[in-house]
Amino acid sequence: MTITLGANRYGKAETRVVRVTRDGETHRIKDLNVSISLSGDMDAVHLSGDNSAVLPTDTQKNTVFAFARKHGIGEIEEFGLLLARHFVTSQPTIRHARVEIEEYAWERVGDGGHSFVRSGREVRTALVHSDGPDGPESVVSGLKDLLVLNSTGSEFHGFIRDEYTTLEPTRDRILATAVTARWRHRGVDAAWGASYERARRCLLEAFAGTHSLSLQQTLYQMGRRVLEECAEICEVRLSLPNKHHFAVDLTPFGMDNDNEVFFAADRPYGLIEGTVLDDEAPAAPEAWN
């Protein structure tokens, strides 16, 4: 038997950094969770414990803080590319950098410019891969925890029935989900903020505008709308948990229930996942990992 070292990477996960930009009395906040993974000439550290090729994960954490101060934080895709390029160009043993970022939104409150409340919006995400400015690079933007619900306009019937099936078909149900969506850009120079808002709007419009016969159908329409309206995006991946709402039986209390009172179930739940892509999109196998 021959034993070899396979693919590997290492890094600092979930560095929480908050950057306050002070424009006089008006302040702006960027609140991020940054995870870094590096790979390259790392055989020796695994096989013999030789650390000479290793940039400490503590240094990676410190770099996040230093870059937040030195460069500021604009769009998270830009910040991710800045970090990734730094690691692969500053250290000869590092060949590839992966930077994943989550952004938590804050909204200004009150008459002053320095009071904030955590926004109820979704979490914005970005995933950057880089072999350096002259090598392959990819950017995947996205969001998670985007809570949406249609109180009607959703059906589910015509499905397989076997000896274990108890679910009754329905022509009118609540359709609710917490959207996780990621979309791959054709290049690494998009107008990130505008692109994000456009993709988000497309997802919401397609969810609201689709008379759904299944959550799978809704998923496809959401991804399709993004690709149709966002030329800079070539692939969309969606994960949609079906947040089941069951009509409560009120007959024991002498009451009817015409789809008005529901029990919002926590688990188990259906999980629908899928990819919608432009067939001419360039392949980017690293972009999602």
Rank of each mutant, 00 (worst) to 15 (best):
E14T: 13
I29R: 06
G270C: 05
L271Y: 11
H244P: 03
E229D: 13
A53C: 13
V99I: 15
I73G: 00
I233H: 02
M42G: 08
R95W: 04
A176T: 11
S37A: 15
A284T: 05
T251W: 04
V88G: 01
Y104P: 01
Q216S: 00
L250R: 08
V88W: 03
G112R: 10
E155G: 04
S39F: 00
S212N: 11
L238N: 08
T26G: 01
L147P: 02
V45Q: 07
T2D: 05
L82T: 15
H185V: 00
G72N: 02
R224A: 09
E260K: 15
E122D: 12
V64H: 07
E25G: 08
T251Y: 04
R173L: 06
Y220V: 05
D266T: 08
F87D: 08
A191T: 08
K243T: 08
L203Q: 05
H114E: 12
L38G: 05
F79T: 04
G193P: 00
H211S: 11
A206R: 02
A208G: 14
D145Q: 15
N51C: 08
F253P: 06
N259C: 03
R267G: 15
K144G: 04
I29Q: 01
L240C: 11
L38M: 07
L203P: 02
G135L: 08
T21Q: 10
I3R: 07
L250E: 08
E273N: 12
P56K: 14
R225Y: 02
E102M: 12
S119G: 09
P133V: 12
L277W: 07
P268N: 09
H211I: 10
H211D: 13
G193I: 00
W106D: 03
W288Q: 07
D134G: 11
P133A: 11
I233P: 01
G113Q: 02
A190M: 04
F156Y: 15
C230Q: 07
S119Q: 09
E235M: 01
T4Q: 06
V17C: 15
Y196A: 04
